[in-house]
Simulated assay, not measured.
Amino acid sequence: MPQLRIAQDERADELLGRDPLALLIGMLLDQQFPMERAFAAPRLLADRLGVDTLSAAALAECDPEVLQRHFQGPPALHRYPGSMAGRAQELARLLVERHDGRAEALWTDVPDGATLLRRLGDLPGFGAQKAKIFLALLGKQYGVTPPGWREAAGDYGQEGSRRSVADITGPESLAEVRATKQAAKKAAKKAAKDAKAVQQA
């Protein structure tokens, strides 16, 4: 079983390591919200549902209002608990419809990285970038390494990179990833400012 240290919380990380659906939901919530809190959220959700492992079938069938209350907390599982509860339920329903309710079915029989990337990109709430990051996380830390996975994950698949959650193995690498993200944001802001100045000149 993978020994993950993404949430920086022993119980939360233990669930991520043994429950592929928990990992998938953590990735879904990793948006406009602190990374470690997003990946700790599946443990909180499991506790509130009174279960040891999350079930796509149970989430798919859950009363949307009840699920929303679980997401609202306190503490809330996301900055936008209502919309994220809806998205998590959409994700669970898709897994039930297409993959027998098993998150790991997304990758167990996959022939190559490009196919896996396509499957991940079809998931609710998974855009192109999120799909690549999750693919890199599967390859680097979950033992899912179909042919061409690094190429499919793009820059996130590079060995030794510190770009995303795929590279977090403890507090030190979390700080490095955070610093890389902040530097990228700063550079993007500067580029936008420079472009605006050119337009106005």
Rank of each mutant, 00 (worst) to 15 (best):
G154L: 11
L77A: 08
Y156N: 12
F126A: 13
A56F: 01
D112E: 14
F33E: 12
G157H: 10
D13E: 09
A188V: 07
Q199A: 07
V110H: 00
A183R: 11
R37C: 08
Y142E: 12
E36D: 13
E10T: 04
A12F: 01
F71A: 11
R162E: 13
A7W: 06
D9C: 12
T115M: 00
E14G: 04
G139W: 00
Y142N: 08
T108P: 04
A191C: 10
L44V: 09
S164W: 03
L138W: 04
L117C: 08
A153M: 10
L106W: 02
L116Y: 00
Y80T: 12
L23D: 04
S55G: 03
A40C: 08
W149N: 09
L59D: 01
L28E: 05
C62F: 05
R5F: 02
A175C: 08
Q32G: 06
L95E: 08
F134T: 11
D155C: 04
D100F: 05
P64M: 04
F39Y: 07
R98T: 11
T115N: 02
D52R: 01
F71D: 13
A46V: 00
K186S: 15
L174T: 09
D155G: 11
V165Q: 01
G101D: 09
G50Q: 07
L77K: 06
E65P: 00
L21T: 11
L77Q: 05
F126N: 11
L95I: 09
